[in-house]
Design a protein around this nucleic acid. Structure first.
Ligand SMILES: [Mn+2]
Ligand SMILES: [Mn+2]
Ligand SMILES: [Zn+2]
Ligand SMILES: [Zn+2]
Lengths: 142, 142
DNA sequence: GTCTTATTGATATCCATTATCAGTAAGGCT
DNA sequence: AGCCTTACTGATAATGGATATCAATAAGAC
């Protein structure tokens, strides 16, 4: 005889529903208060110092999902670590100061167009790009 | 009595003279035979399999100095590892296939100009940039 | 050949990030 | 309010690329 079990399911292949936690809020908020790009470790340190007993793993997880959802941008810093920033949803690029970390959001229409044209000319598909400008801001130049 | 030792030095603060070793040749050669960008680990595996008893640390060291000397290019791959390629000395950029790793050298005059203008307009100095295009080449698209 | 020291390589170490997994709590349901 | 499923959390272990050590080796100048 078959062992039939009653299972309640909303849809056949449902995407697990997200749950709201104070941890997610904390990360998103801390990210919002940051001036430029910050690392997961920096954020965790900041949160901890402000009394929030959040786990490091959670900070990483939250940041990654924020990026996946397009609510944050990430890029690879000078030492290879991932840096994050609260960003608007549309695609754009950054001008980043090596000194203080401040990031200026920039339009890259020209570069975008150039990149996609080059790729297309070479028969490439599924194209993406990495365009970031680094330097020293006016303040840090002094 | 002072223990005086005779020391022969070419210049007061001389840059240590480079010595040629079969290891350096091996790395440079292996790099030359690679089609696209390769990681240090990949190169070391390849060298080892071909009978060369070279150390991993040496591969890393050699690749880094090649980059420092402008004889190789490096970029950060999808998983954050450093990738290397034997390249010409002048500054240029790449169109890289996510499938097979093949890299096409591209002119980026437009993008270069755009980048430096944007940086200058914002008062940035000591400017550098990261411009890479990723996608699937014609072959890998099939 | 002799000497200095740049270079090597096995190994230990670092460090950012991810995997584990048992415990917790969000939130749908009754 | 109480229940129940399971998404989520976090202390910790594990991973993996890259670098630091340091004794042994070998360029290459003399
Ligand atoms: Mn942004
Ligand atoms: Mn190149
Ligand atoms: Zn600055
Ligand atoms: Zn390809």
């Amino acid at each position: 005889m078959k062992n039939t079990t009653l299972v309640t399911m909303t849809t056949s292949d449902s995407v697990p529903s997200r749950r709201q936690t104070w941890q997610k809020d904390a990360v998103l908020h801390a990210l919002g208060t940051s001036q430029g790009f910050v690392s997961a470790q920096q954020l965790h340190r900041q949160l901890t110092q402000h009394g929030s007993a959040i786990g490091l793993a959670t900070v990483y997880r939250t940041l990654n999902s924020l990026v996946a959802d397009g609510l944050a941008d990430s890029l690879v810093g000078r030492e290879g670590e991932s840096l994050f920033r609260d960003c608007s949803k549309d695609h754009h690029h950054h001008l980043i100061c090596n000194g203080c970390g401040v990031a200026v959001e920039i339009e890259a229409k020209q570069a975008e167009a150039w990149a996609s044209k080059v790729a297309k000319d070479h028969g490439f598909t599924d194209v993406s790009h990495t365009i970031d400008i680094f330097g020293l801001c006016k303040q840090c130049t002094k």
